[in-house]
């Protein structure tokens, strides 16, 4: 029989494993690129990408583009996810309205939102509004669908309890519908934030003067491959940051979800 690794060791692996594997991938990439095993034209060594990224950050222009993209994503997310949540709560709590609107959601939701960009450009012009509207449109549906599901999955017993104490419509909404649907609402918020970022970048690629999408696009057009990677890196960091912040926020609004260590159920 083989002996299991001592617990301290496996704990260390869990802790440092991801960082080590990332370092290993970067080292292999660096080596392969430097030796010409993969083309540095397409896969420049990470060290030179890092240098370019540093220079771009110091130049300050990249930070302006980053700020512009962040503002667009947040505006689109708040607008789209906010409306999605409101309508979702209403549709989820009213079976009749839900039944009326469900087919509309089913028809509109699967449309790839980026395909609507030309129409949005026509309606909202080429200014800031069109990017925000596209991000909002993308953020709207995941939030709407998750909120509807979140409200509908609330166990009936909680409505009965509220009812038995004479809770009115607004009280039931505030004390049962909102908190009861929150787990799925917050899952929807994470998807919405991601879609908002995706569509903002997509809109910036094709129809913007500034923003991370334009940074990447311009770098491609001028064949500065390191800058393409640098732009991608910042974009992905932005996505990770949004996800992290939402995760923290989720824990904060649902304190009953964290630290529930329970033997019974």
């Amino acid at each position: 029989m083989r002996e299991a690794a001592p617990p301290e060791f496996s704990g260390q692996v869990e802790r440092w494993g991801p960082a080590l594997s990332a370092l290993a991938v970067l080292a292999a990439w660096e080596l392969a690129s430097r030796t010409g095993a993969i083309s540095p034209m397409f896969f420049p060594p990470p060290s030179s990408i890092a240098v370019v990224l540093w220079r771009m950050l110091m130049g300050g222009e990249l930070l302006v583009d980053l700020g512009i993209t962040i503002a667009r994503v947040i505006a689109g997310f708040v607008l789209g996810a906010g409306l999605g949540m409101l309508l979702g709560m209403v549709m989820g709590s009213s079976p009749r309205l839900g039944a009326q609107l469900d087919p509309w959601v089913a028809a509109l939701h699967p449309t790839p939102k980026i395909a609507v960009l030309p129409l949005i450009l026509v309606i909202f012009g080429i200014g800031e509004a069109s990017k925000i509207m596209l991000a909002a449109l993308g953020a709207f549906f995941p939030m709407l669908i998750n909120t509807i599901a979140g409200v509908r999955q609330i166990p009936h017993i909680y409505f009965e309890v509220a009812d038995s104490y004479g809770a009115g419509r607004m009280q039931t909404f505030a004390r049962v519908v909102v908190p009861g649907s929150l787990p799925l609402v917050m899952a929807g918020a994470r998807i919405s934030a991601n879609v908002a970022l995706m569509l903002t970048i997509a809109a910036e690629l094709v129809a913007a003067q500034r923003g991370l999408g334009q940074v990447i696009w311009f770098a491609w057009q001028t064949l500065r491959i390191e800058e393409v990677y640098a732009g991608l890196f910042v974009t992905s960091m932005l996505g990770i940051t949004f996800a992290y912040l939402l995760e923290r926020f989720t824990r904060w609004v649902m304190p009953w979800r964290s630290g529930v260590r329970n033997a019974s159920r």
Partner: peptide
């Protein structure tokens, strides 16, 4: 007041808030 099978406490409220729920209503 009704006492439910499986208690029917709101998982999102603390014990104190659950007990106070009826009073609030």
């Amino acid at each position: 007041s009704m006492v439910f099978q499986d208690h029917g406490l709101f998982p999102w409220m603390t014990v104190l808030d659950n007990v106070a729920f009826g009073l609030q209503m």
